[in-house]
Design a protein around this nucleic acid. Structure first.
Lengths: 215, 215
DNA sequence: GACGGTGAGACGATTTCTGCCTTAGTGTCT
DNA sequence: AGACACTAAGGCAGAAATCGTCTCACCGTC
């Protein structure tokens, strides 16, 4: 069960320090709306979440949300994009503090698995509205999701891999991570660092460290 | 997160053995509907649960539910009554296997706390729709809830208490249990057997074992 | 074959949700 | 002070859902 997030007491400083800490009210409303969307989806599911719910949870009027987003569809799209970017950044950050390639890959796998497992909205969708998410993480006309995920993590492994193979390596890492992180449950728990290291050492790294570039 | 209960594979035998194990289809549908209601409330909350949802979850047609129950209101009432009876029976059963009064009281408290904590539908309501449940567990024109709860557990303590004081004792035990089991959280975790035993020994039993009957 | 019970679906009535609008209130800038 | 930008609150009409009831086909039992 999740804690009740009282949106009235929003802490003005966030953990993001890349942009200057000034926060325009527009950013705060957009931020609150995105958070509220996630809270509502985690609580009621996407189908049962209304625009009213999000506005109430965000502590603003419906009209304000219409001004920022065009409607429920766009709100969900923006929320999804934001969450994807946030998770990708989190995964890259986990890799950036590691010294070796193996450590970086293990850290990314563990971080990715934890981000997914602790994501209450995503968990709800996987459990009760899989038709909403499954099409996006499986075949969707050219593996757009896997390609995007691979591109997102490629920067984190660029310092370990020859440039011409970074994209392929990133896509493959994303593929391996997804296979183990998403249902159906795999025998390996990617949130467990030791298990993940064994997997990475035995099965993942050998495929990435050989010298021939492949097709 | 809860497991996905596939209602299609309903086990024909239940743990209830008081009535003969024959189960008419009417009982099975009513049983499925009650279960489905709890599942839906745990998943979406009471406000967002539609009659359609319950019918789909129960694996039967909406018309069938209308035949058994008159509508959402009655369905919820019957479900509530059934759950209350089930939990009360569970609490009594926990007491019945104990030898001493102290053991019985401790067992009832622990069982009650666990029933409440593991009750996903109830947890959802407390967390997100408290206005639905709070009026019933607090002042509701004569403490109907506490009186009912006390009467429900009185049979389990009748063998330890003089008959003329059983009702008052049951009502008081229910009161103490509720104070600690419901939010706001108390320092004592009633699901912890040792903590509960200390509470019972120091504060609960002394009030019940003195000889004068009170007003 | 008749019968009772069920699932599936259609139907209007009602309620809710959506998207857009106006109004009043608040804080900032000039 | 006054102009201005922005937002909360709520009204409104159309769209969509939900509700309650109905009919009909199907199926197992008698």
């Amino acid at each position: 069960m999740m804690a009740l997030p009282t949106m009235s007491s929003v802490t003005p400083e966030d953990t993001t320090l890349s942009p200057p800490p000034v926060e325009s009210p527009a950013d705060r409303i957009e931020e609150r709306a995105v958070r509220a969307t996630l809270v509502c989806v985690a609580r009621h599911g996407l189908a049962k979440t209304t625009f009213d719910d999000v506005a109430r949870e965000a502590g603003c009027a419906r009209a304000t949300l219409y001004r920022y987003f065009g409607g429920k569809r766009q709100l969900v799209l923006i929320t999804t994009a934001r969450e994807a970017a946030r998770i990708a950044a989190s995964i890259r950050a986990a890799a950036d503090v590691e010294e070796t390639f193996e450590d970086a890959v293990v850290a990314m796998f563990v971080r990715a698995a934890r981000e997914l497992r602790e994501h209450e909205a995503l968990q709800f969708l996987f459990a009760f509205e899989p038709e909403v998410v499954l099409p996006h993480v499986t075949f969707d006309a050219g593996n757009r999701f896997l390609v995007a995920a691979g591109s997102a993590i490629s920067p984190a492994i660029a310092r370990f891999i020859p440039a011409e193979r970074v994209e392929r390596a990133g896509e493959w890492l994303a593929r391996v991570a997804l296979t183990h992180a998403l249902p159906p449950t795999s025998p390996i728990d990617l949130t467990d660092e030791a298990e993940t290291r064994a997997l990475v050492r035995e099965l993942v790294l050998p495929g990435l460290l050989h010298s021939e570039p492949g097709t």
